[in-house]
Structure formats: C-alpha cells, structure tokens
Design a protein around this nucleic acid. Structure first.
Lengths: 149, 149
DNA sequence: TTCTTTTTGAGAATGAATCTCAAATGAGAC
DNA sequence: GTCTCATTTGAGATTCATTCTCAAAAAGAA
C-alpha cells in the first residue's frame, strides 16, 4: 500500500526539486501507516519511539510539503493544533467529533456536497474547499458520568 | 438595540456573580455595534481608537465571558485566531469565506441542518454544535488578477 | 569523488491567548 | 455616604504550537 503512495511522494519531490531524504520518507511512512488523526507532535513522538532520528522542525516541514501537495489531509478542531490523516485513496469526507473523549468518525454526504455547491453558486463564489465538523457526544460518553479530577 | 441586549448581559453578570464594569460594557457595546467578524485584537484596537481605556487581557477575558454565555458567536477559519461576531438575534448561520479577500458571507440551510442531524443519529452521537465553512473565490476576486508584491 | 545546493537539527523567535499579582474598583452592609 | 472585601483590572510574564535561523551534514548531478 505504501509502495504505490511512496512513488507518488517521490514524484512530487522530484517535480519540486526537493531531495529524497530518509527523514521525509519516514514521516510519510508514519502517516500512511496510521488511521488516526494526529498532531505533528504525536507523529514526531511516534517516530522517536521507533528510533527514527528526526527533529520536530523536520516533521513540521515535511507535513507541510505533504499537505501542500495533497498527500495528507489536515483539520483544525478549534484547539489550535493541526491534525493530520493520510489521504491515500483521496476519500473526501467530513468529521463527527465527540466533545468528551475526542473520538473522530468520518462521514460523507453527497446531498450536503450538492447543497454546498448550490450555496456557493447563489452567492457567486467558486467553491474551492470546505470544512464541516459535527461536534457531539458519542454513545459511550452519554452513558458514563463525567469524571471529576 | 443594544439596550435590550445590555440587559441580557447585565443579567448574565448578575447571575454569575460577576461585576458590571465599564470595561465589560464597552467591550460588549463594541461587539454589538459592528457586523464584522473580528479578532480580539481588532476589537481591542477599535476600543483604543475611541479612547476606551482597556487592556488586551480584559478584552480577551470579556470575550470569553460573552462566548461562554452565548452572547457572541466565534469562529476559527484555520489561521489560529478566533473571530467574534455579535449574536443579537441568535440567527444560527454558517459561513462562506473568500480565500483571497477574506470577505465573509453568512448562509443558512435547513436542509443541511436536517442531514447533519441524520448523520449524528446514524453514528449514535448527540449533536451539540457544528462548524461549517465554505471556502472559495468571490466574484470580484475571480475577475481581478492576483497582485504580486 | 567533487561540487553545489538543499536539508537537517538545536535552539531561538513568533504570536495568539492565558496567567500572575499588586493595585484599583464594584457593590452589598451599615 | 463610607466601610469592607471579594472581584477585576492592567502590565508584563508565560505558554504552547509553529516557524525561523544558521552552521553542519547530506543529497545528487557532473
């Protein structure tokens, strides 16, 4: 799975005259191998945990390259940190987030997509991208009492 | 217009055992008197411009009180800054944002609201709030060439 | 291998937001 | 009105994610 994607990444690097470094490859691998929505710090820590020698700066820089070239998706749920997820099969989707435990579920709605397009048309905007996040309480969190520490 | 709202604010302060200070009133007035989507810094500067003696800290603190009590709405368009707007008539709405000039248009779609609810139900989440932002190019920006500085 | 350019890492810098704490100020009691 | 005391304010320090800096290391074309 990563092999095909790694080729895409290598193509991007070549096209942009960027060098193929072990650090960049490891960051890409780390992102592709997880289905989580992680912050740069989490990706950095995961890399250190598996003994990849890399600095925070390089993780941040690489995530930016990946994002700029549509190899990862990123989201901001309002806490001032970017969360990244791989974008292997380019499934456009939006997010449903539990405000208590942080669990993130992905959803797609062609109907919403269509209405969004209509809204943009109505106001004479050319739609480029969108952010759609639903915040709520998941089943488990509705059941369990709030823990007070 | 602000009179009725000011009463609401005073009620909140009283209910929360918070004091009615000139600074708090001025911040609330400043927010109510504009239809812009401004950052705390912008609100602070506007207050200073009309010779209100206030500190940044107090502006931030007051915006937080207003937000926590649903007297203002706030949004984050991904640049790490909260933008505030008054919430006088509590019109629930979402935003369409021009990625070049920053113009923000408000829109409402009962259809989308309904689908959102269905999505939350499907995943067994109790919907609490949502963020829905459409990013695109407005009419003017599509026409005018990009200025390079 | 050599050479040139890019990349890396460590730590400094940035910037929005929050925190600290002494001095100032509300507002209830008298 | 004024006393009293908890709350609020302001100035500057702090936080924290992210970006920047720059010397040393590495990529990769020749």
């Amino acid at each position: 799975m990563i092999d095909i994607e790694l080729k895409k990444f290598k193509r991007v690097l070549k096209d942009e005259n960027l060098k193929l470094t072990p650090q960049r490859v490891e960051v890409f691998r780390e992102v592709c191998d997880s289905d989580e929505h992680r912050e740069a710090e989490g990706i950095y820590l995961a890399l250190r945990k598996r003994d990849v020698n890399i600095s925070r700066a390089t993780v941040y820089r690489t995530m930016d390259i990946l994002y700029q070239h549509d190899l990862v998706q990123r989201m901001d749920i309002g806490d001032g940190k970017w969360r990244y997820e791989h974008w292997l099969d380019c499934h456009q989707h939006d997010h449903l987030i539990c405000i208590r435990c942080g669990t993130i579920v992905e959803f797609i709605s062609p109907q919403i997509e269509e209405i969004q397009q209509n809204v943009a048309d109505k106001f004479n905007y050319k739609l480029v991208r969108h952010v759609h996040q639903l915040f709520g309480l998941c089943k488990q969190c509705r059941k369990s009492p709030v823990s007070v520490n």
